[in-house]
Computed example of a mutant assay.
Amino acid sequence: MGRDRGVRRFGAALLICAVGLGLLSCSGTTDPPPTETPAPTPSRARPASEPAPVPIAFAPLRGTLADGAALAHPSIAVKIDNHEEARPQIALNRSDIVFEELVEGGITRYAVVWHSDVPDEVGPVRSIRPMDPDIITPFGGPVAYSGGQEVFVDMMMSTGLPNLVFDYDDTGLFYRADDRPGPHDVILLAKEGVGRHLDLAPPPNQFVFGSADPLAAPGFAAQPTSHLALVFSDARFPSWDWDAAAGVWLRSQEGAPDSEASGERVRATNVVTLRVGIDWSWGEVPRTVLDGGGEAWVSVAGRTAHGSWSKAAREAPIVLTADDGSPLRLAPGNTWVELVPNDGSVAFAP
């Protein structure tokens, strides 16, 4: 009997081994289920056709995002004519900063700086004036003009900046446009002018930038503004109107809309108005006084804030300070600086 029970136990064990399909051994221990080792995931190589990431930087004169490599060149400052027969000017809306200054006869002229978007051609180009070294030196790039009184040319040459002068050029950097009356017909190959000086550094920042509405904080006490009326003289009284839909100021001259050669209305993201003294020691040629400081307004995003401006040295930028002592910030975009004489006038309408 005992022997029969032993045989039956042994047979039952064999049956269990068979039913378990090999998952249970005859000794009763459990083997883990078989697993597969996953193949390693190879790292993804960038296809040769896929472009490398673009290094992003801020344009120093506009405060806008841009391709860093595309900004690795100097700016170019150009004296641009604003005589009635010089209009419409070429590529003003592609500039970073425009300075409007009083010259002889009560008319104005521009010192225009291009960096983030240098056109192939700009103009009409005119002669240098005694305040231009103070305006242009901080940018550090070449300056282009058609000539000027010897004393003023010497002043500009003394800055050490590369001077590109139509009167002295025999390299084809300038030409006279057949469709414009002289002397308002000198055109500069601006991109070529920059390309000849790629050893120079990009310009340093000139202003402090904030948001698209940088004067919204109560501390600036910025006033709603729809219209700016500026008087340089009886012959020059530009104005700016706020276009809320486009988010820009639109320019007029002597009561008429001001357009550039492209047909676009001249426009600005920021209008900076500075009250300046005039030095008449050069006879009939006025010199805008930019050493020292004075009253300032910044108009942006349909608002205007009052403050002051200062300039420590010829090489230093213009510093804008709000009445509460904080920096007057600009919105990212292009800027016009209106250098209005103290005996002119400035008015802002809500």
Rank of each mutant, 00 (worst) to 15 (best):
H227A: 08
P34W: 05
P332S: 04
G219F: 01
D154R: 14
Q89T: 08
V276N: 08
P218G: 07
F166G: 09
A77P: 04
S308Q: 12
G294W: 07
G333K: 00
D234N: 14
L274S: 00
G263E: 02
N93R: 00
A86R: 04
A246P: 03
T269I: 08
R303E: 05
L230T: 10
F207D: 04
E315Q: 15
V231A: 11
P60D: 05
E338P: 06
A261L: 14
I16P: 02
W297M: 06
A212T: 14
F99N: 11
V346T: 11
D81W: 01
S239M: 01
E101Y: 05
D167H: 11
V266N: 04
D185L: 04
T41D: 12
A45T: 14
P124E: 01
D31H: 15
C26W: 01
R44A: 13
G68K: 02
E36D: 13
R314I: 06
D120K: 09
A201V: 03
W240A: 14
S259P: 03
N205E: 14
L189H: 15
A312G: 09
D258E: 13
V151S: 13
R44H: 12
G140I: 02
P332N: 10
P133E: 04
L102V: 10
R251Q: 10
G277R: 13
D31G: 14
W249L: 05
A13V: 10
T171I: 00
F166M: 10
N163G: 13
R8I: 06
A86H: 07
Q206N: 11
F209C: 09
A245G: 12
L250N: 09
A217K: 12
R275V: 11
D81C: 09
G344S: 06
A256F: 06
A69D: 11
T35E: 12
P32Y: 05
P60W: 00
V78D: 02
H73P: 07
D120E: 15
V231L: 04
L164N: 09
V118G: 05
A331G: 06
